[in-house]
């Protein structure tokens, strides 16, 4: 107990380490107080001492709260398009094919994209399923962009 207090009291080693990797590069590597993940079936928060798990992600935003060196309630939002997350002992590794910081999403472009997907006609079960998925993803992008304005 004593050791733990000293550990977090040092300030630099508190919270969880959050890493976001994409095929091209490691786009984020930081420490934060709390991380919210968009799992395939809903959101899940991870703080220090969370039980380890490996999960599938849906399209949505990763929220990183209380980043090291910033205000305790500051939130960084990153849009991820599916992928996986590996939560280890005090570390969160998000493995995704696309990660875009929320503030870099162009809202009008995102809306256009959503309209374009809505405008397409899908026939056949597979095409309908993939259209629905694309639409859900596009809607999520728009939502995140609206919120980060």
């Amino acid at each position: 107990m004593m050791a733990e207090t000293t550990g977090s009291g040092a300030g630099n080693v508190s919270g969880v380490r959050c890493v976001i990797v994409t095929p091209e590069l490691t786009s984020l590597d930081t420490r934060a107080r709390f991380v919210t993940l968009p799992l395939f079936d809903g959101q899940r928060g991870v703080g220090r001492g969370h039980a380890p798990f490996i999960g599938r992600l849906g399209a949505g935003e990763v929220r990183i709260t209380g980043e090291q060196g910033g205000p305790a309630d500051a939130v960084r939002r990153v849009f991820v398009e599916g992928g996986f997350v590996e939560v280890g002992h005090d570390s969160v590794t998000v493995i995704t094919q696309r990660a875009i910081p929320a503030e870099k999403i162009d809202l009008s472009q995102a809306r256009e994209e959503l309209d374009k997907i809505r405008g397409t006609v899908a026939t056949g079960e597979e095409a309908i399923a993939s259209k629905m998925q694309a639409e859900a993803t596009a809607r999520e992008v728009v939502r995140i962009a609206e919120r980060s304005r």
Binding site: L39, I54, R56
Partner: peptide, 12 residues
């Protein structure tokens, strides 16, 4: 051995 899988190892 400690890892949980969501939804399951097969699905991942």
């Amino acid at each position: 051995q400690e890892y949980d899988f969501y939804p399951s190892a097969e699905s991942i």
